[in-house]
């Protein structure tokens, strides 16, 4: 898998290429079959160009997401406009807005309900680090505490252009992944075991009842 290309922005002008190259090295560590790589490229092309975001937003950033869908910025140009309201059909969850302690399990559940491959973009200060509400008793300080985040988009709220930039960063990341290749997609969710344990517990409780 080579360096990912994005229309209209040269590779060098993107931020944080170091992390991307590091990921690329990890994935390509064992080498890959030519046929498989070609097939992977096709699949990755499909996936990266058909990112259907989930209709999720908790506060201010969600309004910018709406503005992004509207005529001036038009996310349909990228094929992102098919916002799904059901998590089952979405590929991407744009965490727009503060996640509070009460919302955290709900968000986690939404994420668990999504079908693989799924991605998370943390939009805005609140989801990156807690943002304006870092001192609060009821705010999750960084959504990476509960979800595996792929891209961080800082801003309060970020401009719609910054949203696109984040989405294109994600596309770049999607373009280097392996679907059929030797090394499969990195097991990126560090909270997975926790969630599975919880699920088992719930199943047990249900069976007892």
């Amino acid at each position: 898998m080579g360096k990912p290309k994005i229309k209209s922005i040269p590779y060098e002008e993107f931020k944080d290429n170091e992390t991307l190259e590091q990921m690329l090295d990890e994935l390509n560590a064992h080498g890959a079959n030519v046929v498989v790589t070609t097939a992977d490229k096709l699949i990755n092309w499909g996936r990266s160009n058909s990112v259907w975001p989930m209709n999720f937003g908790t506060s201010c950033c969600a309004i910018e997401l709406m503005a992004m869908g509207a005529a001036r910025f038009d996310m349909a140009r990228f094929g992102f406009e098919v916002t799904r309201t059901s998590p089952r059909q979405a590929d991407l969850i744009l965490v727009c807005g503060t996640i509070t302690n009460k919302m955290a399990p709900v968000l986690r559940r939404l994420y668990d309900q999504m079908a693989d491959p799924k991605y998370v973009i943390a939009i805005g200060g609140c989801t990156c680090t807690g943002g304006p509400f870092t001192k609060s008793y009821h705010v999750v300080k960084g959504v990476d505490k509960i979800l595996p985040v792929d891209v961080y988009v800082p801003g309060c709220p970020p401009r719609p252009e910054a949203f696109y930039y984040g989405m294109m960063q994600l596309q770049r990341k999607m373009k280097i992944e392996n679907f059929l290749g030797t090394v499969n997609r990195k097991e990126k969710d560090e909270h997975k075991e926790e969630a599975e344990e919880l699920q088992k517990k719930i199943i047990n409780q249900e069976q007892e009842a």
Binding site: K15, D16, C128, V149, Y152, E161, Y165
Partner: peptide, 12 residues
């Protein structure tokens, strides 16, 4: 400069 999205939180 609005293009600030990164993959790694530490880069923020």
């Amino acid at each position: 400069e609005f293009e600030n999205a990164v993959f790694d939180k530490n880069k923020l």
